[in-house]
Write a protein that binds this DNA or RNA. Structure first.
Lengths: 225, 225
DNA sequence: ATATATTTGTGTATAAATTACACATAATGA
DNA sequence: TCATTATGTGTAATTTATACACAAATATAT
């Protein structure tokens, strides 16, 4: 064979959320190409592992993060996207809960850091395009799949959910109508626990009931905001 | 290198439509594995071609079809999906207009044929799964993207569109309300041409105005049925 | 040529969903 | 105890979706 084979990699755009900010997990590359530049975590797929396994392995190896939700995003395969040769990358997008924040750098990563999604550094390869695709997907999907809960703590006050949606959708929402709608979807359990952060009336905690959600979905009842 | 490299292929689920029937383009495999069995068209990606080019090339080579609409579907990468070794396949889904029906068999195809989507034969590899994914995507997307027009002739009577949606959505729709809605979307040009097929009042022809659609989309006006 | 069958084309009234909007409650802190 | 801050709740107005029937234009059969 005269030509080198096509290589297959996986990359993951990992979103976090805290205090009204969407953040993205990036690594600083330790090696060429793009040494010292920021990139989304990822790496080559090994011969006998599934794509999902590869993503999870790379994320763990490079950043120490435990992903909460993972879905395939898109496969990027332009011939010149990697200067090392032909590399096709299957991109994933993932969501993590806020207090999974015990990240560390390892293997090809010199540094790992959360970046506010509107203060992103220059990225390596075509990672900017991958990231944009992921943001679009997240914003699009949040209205018809209950992804938001994957970004919040298991138990959360309603205002957290509200703020999250305000952030993700990039526009104000009516507090009363939003609550009415979400409660009407019947996928939240209201707990008998209150939490109070700072001044103001303490808030009741809620919990997403995934089981009920899947039940309703099976019955053809759709989640939509 | 002791292990063989991962190979990359593309496959395409191509949908056609005629007379109230969704059809899928399949080839009968000429070689092992799965020799003599039906499969969706596809093949290995060459070193310097983009994924889209690879799909279009394979489709042309194997079936002679000219695709009208093509989008990436999903990448299938389970380690054991191909008995020849590790093959990861980027699947696409395509739509063709009815009178592009000059198909022929070539290269690895012994035969090419349109199958009614609810009378499909047993398929090779994990192609059943790929096909199901494509059908889901088509049905899901048809309501919020104007894909339907890609399956009709450029000029079509309104009833064609209506029948197409009835078929794709798998349920009856109210003729008057449907027409009201579609006309209200402002993406159809009504032509001064009539067509009459068989008995009944002749129908006016319509044409999808792609330019206007993109204009409206840019203005944030969404297509939804 | 006349009647019958077939398909296209159109409006209105009702129901359902979405939106707009304001004040009481429970806590903190000065 | 008074001011401040965040939570929690209902109703009316508007918009959108649904249900529904008959006239117009042609082909076909008698």
């Amino acid at each position: 064979m005269s030509k080198q084979a096509i290589k297959l990699s996986v990359d993951a755009v990992v979103f976090g959320y805290e205090e009204g900010n969407i953040s993205v997990l990036l690594i600083k590359r330790k090696f060429e190409p793009f040494k010292g530049q920021w990139a989304i975590p990822g790496g080559f797929v090994e011969h006998d592992e599934s794509l999902e396994t590869a993503v999870e392995r790379e994320l763990l190896e490079e950043t120490g993060i435990k992903i909460n939700y993972l879905e395939q995003l898109y496969t990027f395969g332009k011939p010149k996207r990697d200067p090392r040769g032909r590399v096709v990358s299957v991109a994933y997008f993932g969501l993590v809960r806020p207090n999974t924040f015990d990240i560390f750098a390892a293997t090809d990563a010199e540094q790992v850091q959360w970046f506010n999604s509107n203060e992103l550094p220059k990225l390596s390869f075509d990672h900017k395009e991958i990231l944009n695709t992921a943001i679009e997907r997240l914003q699009g999907k949040i209205t018809y799949e209950p992804l938001g809960f994957e970004l919040l703590d298991k138990k959360f006050p309603f205002s957290d959910l509200e703020k999250l949606y305000t952030t993700l959708l990039g526009r104000d929402i009516d507090r009363r109508n939003f609550r009415k709608k979400i409660i009407g979807l019947n996928v939240l359990d209201e707990l008998n626990e209150k939490v109070s952060k700072g001044s103001g009336r303490p808030a009741n905690l809620f919990q997403f009931n995934k089981k009920r959600y899947f039940q309703l979905k099976k019955e053809g009842i759709i989640f939509e905001i």
